[in-house]
């Protein structure tokens, strides 16, 4: 997994609550057996005016000029600013894969759906929770200033605005450690394999029917 330490990036505002993973990556793209290449179809139904299917040449499709991520001022954004309950619905990890492939490394919202939130960390992405008031404030700043960038520092757990305003955010210590060091969960868990074996043996003795 890629490390995440610090990033200063252009911010794109997606001003809606309850953005679900069906919207982030529609179901037809889930047929892929690969882990990459979902970026061109991130937000497919909002981003294009035609119906997208896997295998289409996306560069030839008709773009929806009204969709915020299509606006020239947000091209190349690395930070997605959005509203509460982002990533609700399906557990599809294709959603963070699509956002990451699109270019986003950081998401800022006042809350996330649990499974999506968890999936982000497995892919070197940082979903940041800030209060609804701060998120509101950031939306106003992004809309007001073209080229608006935020400086995100995971070690210090801070988001810094262009004017130097600093917002602290919380992050779970284990997840922070994994992101800062680019650690693969499986490798970490395997360090405990003796404990797993011991637990398993005891568990099997207590509930043998689980092992039939």
């Amino acid at each position: 997994m890629d490390k995440f330490i610090q990033l200063k990036g252009l911010v794109a505002p997606l001003d809606r609550a309850n953005v679900d993973t069906d919207a982030i990556i529609p179901k037809q793209f889930l047929k892929s057996i690969k882990r990459s290449g979902f970026g061109p179809n991130a937000f497919d139904e909002w981003r294009y005016l035609d119906h997208g299917e896997p295998g289409m040449d996306n560069s030839k499709r008709k773009i929806n000029p009204d969709f915020v991520l299509n606006q020239a001022r947000y091209l190349g954004a690395r930070v997605l600013l959005t509203r509460e309950n982002f990533g609700c619905g399906s557990s599809r990890e294709h959603a963070p894969w699509a956002l990451e492939d699109f270019g986003f490394k950081v998401i800022i919202a006042s809350s996330y759906a649990d499974i999506f939130f968890n999936n982000c960390f497995k892919n070197g992405m940082l979903p940041i929770v800030l209060s609804a008031e701060i998120v509101d404030n950031l939306f106003n700043q992004v809309f007001a200033a073209e080229g608006y960038k935020l400086d995100v520092d995971l070690s210090a757990q801070t988001v810094t605005t262009p004017s130097g305003e600093v917002f602290k955010f919380e992050v779970d210590a284990f997840r922070k450690h994994c992101l800062l060091n680019g650690l693969d969960d499986i490798g970490l868990t395997m360090q405990h394999q003796d404990k797993i074996k011991t637990f398993e043996a005891k568990h099997q003795q207590a509930q043998p029917w689980l092992f039939n």
């Binding site: 990890e93 999936n119 797993i196």
Partner: peptide, 15 residues
């Protein structure tokens, strides 16, 4: 429900 990275994690470690 879990994501695909966790599917792999459970397969590899049972945890």
């Amino acid at each position: 429900g879990i994501g695909t990275s966790e599917v792999e994690h459970v397969m590899a470690t049972q945890c």
